[in-house]
Amino acid sequence: MKINQKLFLQFGISIIFFGLIGILINNLTINLIRTGLGFDFSWLLKPASFALAEHPLPYTSSDSYAWALFIGWLNSLKVIVSSLILATFLGTLIGFARTGTNSLLGLISAGYITIIRQTPLLLQLMFWYFVGFLGLKDNMFIQIKNIFNISNKGIELSGLTFSSEFLALLFGLSIFTSAYIAEVIRGGILSVSRGQWEAFRSLGISERKGVIRIILPQALPAIIPGLTSQYLNLAKNSTLAIAVGYSDIYAINDTIINQTGRAIECFIILLISFLLLNLLITNAMEIINRLILKSQRYD
């Protein structure tokens, strides 16, 4: 009897739920058609007729809109992955400095976190771009034996060029996110009881070895979920690329909306692209999390 009631309730709720979604979608389609904005994706195959400053794969303005969007997605991926690595590295360093025994380092990292966390990301990106990189004048560049070359056009490193737009975004995103990651790491480390520290010290294990072998493995389960959400934030924040002239998927979408007038379709594509990206990050982190938990059970 009880189970039947429960089933009935769930069944009812699902009917209401899907009915509601159906009404909403129906409402959307009808209104789109009424305003002359009915769904149409055929424009995706037409030539984009705009150039891009940065493209990891060959691209010309006679390529299709779909290809331009894919190039934009790759550009996004490029900046997200590299910021993710840099931010994790920076964040870990600062997180440890904050919790370590060196009080000067602790103070500096606390100041860093405070400043970075209390200013808006957009402002920081603008700062890195307009003050940091474009502030370097054309003729005022640092050059070391044609290997390393920095000017307001960007950085050239033995044949590899990074535009100042990419670098501003990379620095801005990494530094902003690193402050949050540092706090996540600190939280994780503090969750390990003090007894553990005292235990490995009294056993004569060196500080470095103790942190890596004893403390970190116990802190990781508390760190990973927080870290995942910071990574997701980073991916989403990368759309601020448009403020510093980097051709990420959002910026390219913006151009395409203006050329084709297909705002709804473009936003759906944008949503799906980010969904893919973020599901990728979430699932990768989940796998890492599971591996860590598993390895600890055997230890």
């Binding site: 909403l24 959307l28 009808i30 209104n31 789109l32 305003t35």
Partner: peptide, 8 residues
Amino acid sequence: SAGCATTN
């Protein structure tokens, strides 16, 4: 979609 569908 519900939010943007009620105009006009």
